[in-house]
Amino acid sequence: MSIQHFRVALIPFFAAFCLPVFAHPETLVKVKDAEDQLGARVGYIELDLNSGKILESFRPEERFPMMSTFKVLLCGAVLSRVDAGQEQLGRRIHYSQNDLVEYSPVTEKHLTDGMTVRELCSAAITMSDNTAANLLLTTIGGPKELTAFLHNMGDHVTRLDRWEPELNEAIPNDERDTTMPAAMATTLRKLLTGELLTLASRQQLIDWMEADKVAGPLLRSALPAGWFIADKSGAGERGSRGIIAALGPDGKPSRIVVIYTTGSQATMDERNRQIAEIGASLIKHW
């Protein structure tokens, strides 16, 4: 067993022997301040990774656009098919120029040779490549099948209805392509620590998230040296922004954090800054 596999296998073990965790309302004060600064709703939840206990939450059962955070769930569904012998990570998928959609920095470079399922998941999570996500959605049967996968996990809230990039439209009061912070946090925890996926697939999923290259201005910008984070960000229309993450000190994750916002007129930089400040408060009061 590799060191990384050992780390993920012992996530519940280490967490069980940690000192009790206590909620700190100071972080919620910052979440509410972010709402004021952005002029928009902000949803927040913080779960203990081992027990699933909610440590703090704000608007945990209000719907927010998922945006690209759905790509972690998508690759979880792909990995479940791999575990069941219905898919192979090494299978190569070929596609054409007509398949390319807006923001496809990886797939646009491989029109000639195609990409493997493993490479597509890596591109979808680490670079948020939209064509990679659409190609992977095709392998599982489309958005409705991802929703069905989530329902089978016990998540009857999260739903995907459309493809990239239309799913980022974020129309107010439109339930399409949305989740709730509580539902997303619980589902992410199941994917990373539950028995739904094999140990190898859980490790692969967290490795992809740990290698995320496009979430630097968010929670990662607030992390002290030595902290662990595996995350996936999302951005959408109407001032929408979000991030889902597993993080913790001492090089291992111990909490799940989900943050979503929508309806702001603020710039992307300002949305990023507010999420980073929430992260800084979380870490300060850990």
Rank of each mutant, 00 (worst) to 15 (best):
P143Y: 04
L223I: 14
A266L: 13
A123W: 02
S233F: 01
K190G: 15
L196Y: 12
A182S: 14
L74G: 03
R241A: 04
S57R: 11
A185G: 12
I125T: 06
L120C: 05
W227A: 01
N134H: 04
E270L: 11
A230S: 05
T198L: 09
A123K: 04
E62C: 06
D212E: 05
E210T: 09
S68H: 01
T131G: 12
D207F: 10
M66T: 07
A246F: 12
T107Q: 01
W227G: 01
E119Q: 12
T261S: 11
I45Q: 06
A276S: 12
G239V: 02
G279P: 01
R176H: 08
V106D: 08
L49M: 14
G216D: 07
A148S: 12
S57V: 11
A77D: 08
L192H: 05
I278S: 02
N98F: 14
K71N: 00
A230N: 00
H110G: 10
I171A: 15
E166N: 13
T126K: 07
P25L: 11
R238C: 12
G43V: 03
E237H: 15
L192V: 10
L150E: 00
V72T: 09
A182F: 15
L219T: 03
I256M: 08
N173M: 12
E195A: 11
A84E: 10
I256V: 13
V257Q: 03
G85R: 11
P60N: 10
E102T: 15
R271N: 10
E108V: 14
V82Y: 07
D212Y: 03
L219S: 03
M209K: 00
T112E: 14
A148K: 15
V117W: 00
H24C: 09
I206A: 10
H24P: 08
L167P: 03
E61T: 13
D113A: 11
R59F: 03
G90N: 14
V157H: 12
H110T: 06
V82S: 08
K53L: 14
R220K: 05
L219R: 03
V101L: 11
R91L: 06
Y103M: 07
P172K: 12
M115P: 02
S80P: 05
L167F: 04
V214E: 04
P249T: 08
Y260C: 05
T131R: 04
T139P: 04
V42L: 11
L100Y: 06
K53G: 13
G248I: 02
S68N: 04
R189P: 04
M268G: 08
N173A: 13
D83S: 07
D207W: 12
L191A: 05
F228Q: 06
Q88I: 13
M66F: 09
K53I: 13
L79F: 05
K284V: 10
N130Q: 00
S281R: 12
A246I: 14
D269T: 13
E277C: 09
P217H: 10
I243T: 05
P143H: 08
D33C: 11
V29W: 15
L219F: 09
A235I: 05
D155W: 00
R241W: 02
L100P: 01
P217Y: 08
D250Q: 14
L89P: 07
K109E: 12
W163S: 09
R92N: 10
M184K: 00
R202D: 01
L100S: 05
M67E: 03
G52L: 05
E56F: 03
N50G: 12
H24Q: 11
R63K: 10
G239N: 06
A225S: 13
E270M: 09
K71A: 00
E26M: 14
K144P: 11
T126F: 01
Y103R: 04
G142Y: 02
L28R: 12
P60I: 14
G242H: 01
T187A: 09
T69I: 05
A276I: 07
K190V: 15
R273V: 11
T139F: 07
L111P: 08
L100H: 05
P165D: 07
I283L: 09
L49T: 08
A34Y: 07
L49R: 06
S128F: 01
E195Q: 15
K32N: 09
M268H: 08
Y95Q: 04
D36T: 15
R162S: 09
G39E: 13
I259R: 00
Q86V: 15
S68W: 00
R81T: 07
N130A: 01
R92F: 10
D155E: 06
L282N: 04
E87D: 13
K232V: 01
D33T: 14
K144M: 11
I45F: 15
A230C: 09
T186D: 15
L74I: 08
W163C: 09
G263N: 11
M115S: 05
E237N: 14
I206W: 10
V214Y: 06
L73S: 08
I244L: 11
Y44A: 02
L160E: 04
P25F: 10
K252P: 06
D174E: 08
S233A: 08
G234F: 00
E26W: 09
M268V: 10
L136R: 00
R118W: 15
L196V: 15
R63N: 07
Q274E: 14
K71E: 01
L146F: 11
M115H: 03
N134L: 00
A133K: 03
H151D: 11
N152F: 11
E26D: 11
E195R: 13
P105T: 05
K213C: 09
A230Y: 00
I229E: 02
E175N: 11
I283N: 03
